[in-house]
Computed example of a mutant assay.
Amino acid sequence: MMGSSWNWMRRMRRRRRKTSKGDIITLADSLPKSLARPWPPLALPLPWDFPLLPTHSTPTSNTRGRICFVTLDGHLLKNYALSTDFTMDALAIFSEFKTAHLPIQSVLSRFTVEQGMPPTSNPWVIKNIVKEVLKSWPLKSANTAKPAEFVEALRGVLMGVAMRLKTTPLKMAHTVTTYDGKSLLQFLTNKHQMIKALEMTWKSLPKEEHGKLIKEYVGVALDILSPATGLPHCGTVQEMDKIVSSELKMVDGVEGGVLNRKEFKKVMVEVVGRIMNELERNPVSVSSDVVITKSIVFPTQEDNSEQRNH
């Protein structure tokens, strides 16, 4: 049940509504169109459009670094490939490459823009750089690969990527977002806003016939609170999904499987607190890379004349 509710939230879409006072975040913003209406047997009307938190007072969802514009010309990647840091990283990857039979393209995704590697999730990078370089990948079978062979083969791939970047530099927009629990601490310490947000969330959720909340909706409630807590919506950051899912397991022990209003608020505060403690111990950083420009090779006059002849 908890899993199905969590999967449902992955499909949630958000909408914004403008007023004369500016943008405000409402509970309806966090619900999909199909569910942005009262559930029976709740009474009509329900306050779907009351403010959850004004935009200006919503805590930042994370520690977001500045957007850096980086030109990858192969120099940084070449230096990394020749360093001892690369050797250690490659040896760490080797065991997983051999036991899990990882494709080499997945191995390359382990390297980052900070190391000079363009994002292998970008279709242009895959087509014009990665696939071309991997044509010379020497290891045909992971079972027979030796650690030293793997390291040198992988080094050769990175050097090949560096050579292509030298002739075709890529300009990247790069930023790192860190979830470190600070926004959750802000949510918990601002008692007035916290109680207000929890109360509105309680009113918005469907109840069973005795007016209590089924425990499986705690995950839905947590996702509705995302604008206030600073947590990403379910399904947007895989590492955060794992942490949230782990902490939501505490709800399985709820007696009777239902919560009244007071119990709901207590459980929500405890869940948020547990997530905050985990992020303080182990912050989650997510990098975002976008290729904003790439060199274009225009045909020469000789190429044009050859095309006309054909």
Results as ranks from 00 to 15, higher is better:
residue 41 P to V: 00
residue 41 P to L: 01
residue 41 P to E: 00
residue 41 P to I: 01
residue 42 L to R: 09
residue 42 L to Q: 08
residue 42 L to C: 01
residue 43 A to C: 01
residue 43 A to G: 04
residue 44 L to I: 02
residue 45 P to R: 05
residue 46 L to M: 08
residue 46 L to W: 02
residue 47 P to H: 00
residue 47 P to C: 04
residue 47 P to I: 00
residue 48 W to A: 07
residue 49 D to E: 08
residue 49 D to F: 03
residue 49 D to G: 03
residue 50 F to H: 04
residue 50 F to Y: 04
residue 51 P to Q: 12
residue 51 P to C: 07
residue 51 P to H: 11
residue 52 L to A: 13
residue 52 L to K: 03
residue 52 L to Y: 06
residue 53 L to K: 03
residue 53 L to P: 00
residue 54 P to N: 10
residue 54 P to K: 10
residue 55 T to I: 04
residue 55 T to C: 02
residue 55 T to Q: 05
residue 56 H to M: 13
residue 56 H to R: 12
residue 57 S to W: 05
residue 58 T to H: 00
residue 59 P to W: 03
residue 59 P to S: 03
residue 60 T to Q: 07
residue 61 S to D: 14
residue 61 S to C: 06
residue 61 S to P: 15
residue 61 S to W: 09
residue 62 N to R: 11
residue 62 N to Q: 11
residue 62 N to K: 12
residue 64 R to V: 09
residue 65 G to S: 14
residue 66 R to C: 08
residue 66 R to D: 12
residue 66 R to P: 12
residue 66 R to H: 11
residue 67 I to C: 10
residue 67 I to G: 09
residue 68 C to A: 15
residue 69 F to H: 13
residue 69 F to Y: 09
residue 70 V to W: 07
residue 70 V to C: 04
residue 70 V to P: 04
residue 71 T to I: 14
residue 71 T to M: 11
residue 72 L to K: 02
residue 72 L to G: 05
residue 72 L to N: 06
residue 72 L to W: 03
residue 73 D to R: 06
residue 73 D to E: 07
residue 74 G to S: 12
residue 75 H to Q: 15
residue 75 H to C: 10
residue 76 L to Y: 02
residue 76 L to A: 05
residue 77 L to R: 00
residue 78 K to I: 00
residue 79 N to W: 11
residue 79 N to Q: 15
residue 80 Y to I: 07
residue 81 A to E: 13
residue 83 S to H: 05
residue 83 S to Y: 09
residue 84 T to P: 00
residue 85 D to S: 11
residue 85 D to V: 10
residue 86 F to N: 02
residue 86 F to A: 00
residue 86 F to D: 00
residue 86 F to K: 00
residue 86 F to P: 00
residue 87 T to G: 04
residue 87 T to L: 07
residue 87 T to E: 15
residue 88 M to N: 15
residue 89 D to N: 04
residue 90 A to G: 10
residue 90 A to D: 09
residue 91 L to E: 15
residue 91 L to T: 14
residue 92 A to F: 15
residue 92 A to H: 15
residue 93 I to N: 13
residue 95 S to H: 10
residue 97 F to S: 06
residue 97 F to D: 05
residue 97 F to N: 04
residue 98 K to N: 12
residue 98 K to F: 05
residue 99 T to C: 00
residue 99 T to Q: 05
residue 100 A to C: 01
residue 101 H to D: 14
residue 101 H to L: 07
residue 101 H to K: 13
residue 101 H to V: 08
residue 102 L to H: 09
residue 102 L to Q: 11
residue 102 L to C: 10
residue 102 L to E: 09
residue 103 P to S: 01
residue 104 I to T: 14
residue 104 I to E: 07
residue 104 I to N: 06
residue 105 Q to R: 04
residue 105 Q to L: 06
